[in-house]
Design a protein around this nucleic acid. Sequence first.
DNA 1: CATTCTCATCAAGTTTGGTGATATATGCGT
DNA 2: ACGCATATATCACCAAACTTGATGAGAATG
Lengths: 291, 291
Amino acid sequence: MRAPTLDFTLLRTLVAIADTGSVTAAAKRLAYTQSTVSMQLQRLEAQLTLTLHEREGRRIRFTSEGERLLTHARRLLALNDEAWNDMQARQVTGDLTLGIPEDYASLLPSVFAYFHQLYPAVGLKVICGTSVRLVEQVKAKELDLALVTRQRNSPGGDVIRREPLVWAVGVNQQPLLSDPLPLALYSPGADVFREVAEQALQAAGRSWRVAYTSQSMTGLAPIVTAGLAIVVVTRSMLTSSLRPLDESSGLPALPMIELALHRAPHRPSEPARRLGELIREQLAAPAHALS
Amino acid sequence: MRAPTLDFTLLRTLVAIADTGSVTAAAKRLAYTQSTVSMQLQRLEAQLTLTLHEREGRRIRFTSEGERLLTHARRLLALNDEAWNDMQARQVTGDLTLGIPEDYASLLPSVFAYFHQLYPAVGLKVICGTSVRLVEQVKAKELDLALVTRQRNSPGGDVIRREPLVWAVGVNQQPLLSDPLPLALYSPGADVFREVAEQALQAAGRSWRVAYTSQSMTGLAPIVTAGLAIVVVTRSMLTSSLRPLDESSGLPALPMIELALHRAPHRPSEPARRLGELIREQLAAPAHALS
DNA sequence: CATTCTCATCAAGTTTGGTGATATATGCGT
DNA sequence: ACGCATATATCACCAAACTTGATGAGAATG
């Protein structure tokens, strides 16, 4: 007697029959003939020497053995697909450059680690820059993908996630609400946060001055925690040294910003597609109000 | 493109090659031809469109993809075998009577529950009795199996487990070491514990009297916990109301007893075989000195 | 009662997979 | 270096397994 071995093909038709509730429908779904599916079911029963199904008039009913095998089958197929996908993923090769805004660098390492696990043969390079610059680089095909922040409903790229912006100040500081308002801004020339903040203040008729600027948030941190200026960050970027300011502070509400993924023009490479999908999955926004 | 599906047969071959380290050896183990195994390996690589192995002179070496698939394969095969065995087990039907000594009734319910899970179509009946009587019933084919206690190296049956016997007394009582020693015994005419105790006392030159007897330990419990008599039990039967007596009590050491499984003469039924195996597995002794 | 739908069964054609024989390559001993 | 023994790859052939399209039986619908 040779090794007792199940047949994935038969198991797959079994669950298809169970899912659709009919042999004909299962056949359609699997792109087989009806007679094939019918015989496959019989073959499976013959191999196991037991009865998996009965007929109640027109409807099919699984015996307890059938139900039991079904749970085994689903488990096995899930593992099969996982294994298969994993092996296919290892064949995805190539190089890939992704651009991200500096402020998001902290959000992504886990995604990169996961990506490397799934696609060990892909060389991934990450560069940081301002959103405006990254978009230019993607258009120039210097980058395969770029994750950028942008104001709501700006054109270009696919929205991955929406996030609220907040005013923040050092955790132990009183907000410095003098007029003009002292702002700490980073990415001096081009950053979205700056635009958003200035628009909001202007609409509210407030005056402001740019008290400090830096290339990155880290450079700004000492100023802000010292209470010398107010900063704009996304809610997810709040650290323990930052305290968000609500409406009672008298500052105008800030709109949401969007995290968007830009892809290089024309057919993305396979690695780029995969990374794009992964980023979408992993960064998918927790439930927010939308549209 | 039809469903991406692995082939258990090929996976099995793969692990056989990995286990044996050679195509030829794998072929022998699987009862295939060498050429078959060789082609199967190629087929597997072709289906996945990747290279699983390389040759280092004569020796085979798996690529990292090969190693990876191997771990998947082992997992999948384990699940396959589990599923297969489960489905086969459900086809084992019939009735089955097992005899056990009353004092072990508490040890076995979990085994019975497990057995019923594995072999739901088997009707299992359990009867209790003294070891001597159970052995007779097995010989008379009134029982399919009997689990009995016996003195070390007595003939008949297969040893499942060896257990130490101990003298015990009520947990709050001082041992009543009068002469003659008051014993509480159950299974009056025939029990092994009694034989063992009496042999040990006789060898030690002690006198004793049977102060109380009962069909089961439960009937004796009040007497013993009240400190009116001493009882002999296996170490695993000690309850919170019993206190074991060590050598400092002056009582002679007791030998180990054996738990043995007797099978009805001539070919055991399939259910009987299975239950026998299960009992052996489940009751397998924790590490003891042996021989 | 006719129609429609689903399913089981059959014969036939095709594909797949295993076998035995043979060729190639590696390691080892002389 | 040479030849023997062992391990592997490859080929053609055959048998078994699988899919298919056709056909008929049985059940639901109206």
